[in-house]
């Protein structure tokens, strides 16, 4: 079976100017990443700010051209497809539902736009489908008549989800879809995304900095650090037995609502990762509390780990 998403040796560099006199710098946002997402599953991606999650999302959506490597979506190269075919195959849902909705249009027109852009649907068909998807995401017909500013954050995210699903794509890329929402509304949206996936057989790439959210939605999880997947495995296995020291630190830093446990010492130091200055050897070594001499000059290779995962660490 073809995977919904297949990424091979993907790399993305940006050139940035840091100041008047200083030389151009190369930011390596995604650094030789390879993975597959089977149809109908959810790959969760976690990692600190700036580690390359959104860049990876934009590469997969075809919004950004890779420096090297390939992306296949449903077995096809997105650059070989026209915009209309691409829109029927894969759709994004972003963090900030306000920024992503045109403030001067009614919700139902915003949701209708992807259908209208195809140029193959009749007015009646568009109306029927928009009505159907609005109802599916829990927005009433009256809400469809409103402007984005007249909706709450959660309702706007529902509208953004409706717009993403109205063409019935197979694959949805969710980049921090609930990060701007309150927990009570986050729960509503996560439950909605789970229902839609089950009922419509969707595949998600789900990016979040909230590990608990990822554990809740993902079938597999990848941990990203300075542009690379440093560990990947089935969700239960990864949360039960994190192998990479960075994954362990990420998990330890989650503050679960358990009174009396205090705040853990995760021992990462104050050196922050900088994608324009990736350290030699293992890229995590300046923050790693178990680093050995070898880590400072030899980069670890990906090694398979059960049940169906990998890790990049000399000691894991």
């Amino acid at each position: 079976m073809t995977a919904a998403i297949e990424v091979e040796n993907l790399r993305c560099e940006f050139r940035v100017h840091t100041g008047l006199m200083s030389a151009e710098k190369r930011v390596v946002a995604v650094d030789d990443v390879t993975f597959k997402v089977p149809a109908g599953s959810v790959l969760g991606i976690v990692g600190e700010s700036g580690c390359g999650k959104s860049t990876l999302a934009r590469l997969i959506l075809g919004l950004l051209k890779p420096t090297a490597g390939t992306v296949l979506v449903d077995g096809k190269r997105l650059f070989d497809l026209d915009r209309k075919a691409r829109a029927r195959l894969i759709q994004p849902v972003f963090q900030d539902p306000f920024a992503s909705l045109n403030p001067r249009r009614r919700i139902k027109d915003i949701v209708a736009l992807p259908l209208a852009a195809q140029g193959t649907f009749s007015r009646g068909e568009i109306e029927r489908r928009v009505g159907g998807i609005l109802e599916r995401v829990g927005l009433s017909a009256a809400m469809g008549e409103r402007m984005p500013s007249q909706l709450s954050g959660g309702q706007r995210q529902r509208a953004a989800i409706a717009r993403a699903l109205v063409l019935e794509p197979r694959i949805v890329i969710c980049d921090e879809p609930t990060s701007a929402l309150d927990v009570s509304v986050q729960a509503q949206i996560l439950n909605l995304l789970a229902d839609l996936r089950r009922d419509l057989g969707l595949t998600y790439l789900f990016i979040s900095h909230n590990l608990a959210v990822v554990e809740h939605v993902a079938s597999e999880v990848a941990v990203m650090y300075l542009g690379r997947f440093v560990e990947r495995n089935e969700t239960d296995a990864l949360f039960r037995k994190p192998r990479h020291p960075y994954t362990q630190a990420l998990l330890e830093s989650v503050l679960t609502p358990e009174p009396g446990k205090g705040v853990p010492d995760i021992g990462l130091g104050d050196a922050m990762p900088d994608p324009s200055n990736i350290p030699p050897g293992c890229r995590f070594n300046p923050r790693c509390r178990i680093a050995v001499e070898r880590c400072r000059h030899e980069a670890p290779m990906p090694m398979a780990r059960p049940p169906r995962g990998m890790v990049e660490c000399h000691l894991a």
């Binding site: 927990v183 986050q186 590990l211 608990a212 554990e215 969700t235 989650v254």
Partner: peptide, 11 residues
């Protein structure tokens, strides 16, 4: 009840 707790998630 809205807060997902790692390790106690029922997917």
């Amino acid at each position: 009840s809205c807060v997902p707790v790692p390790g106690r998630v029922q997917r």
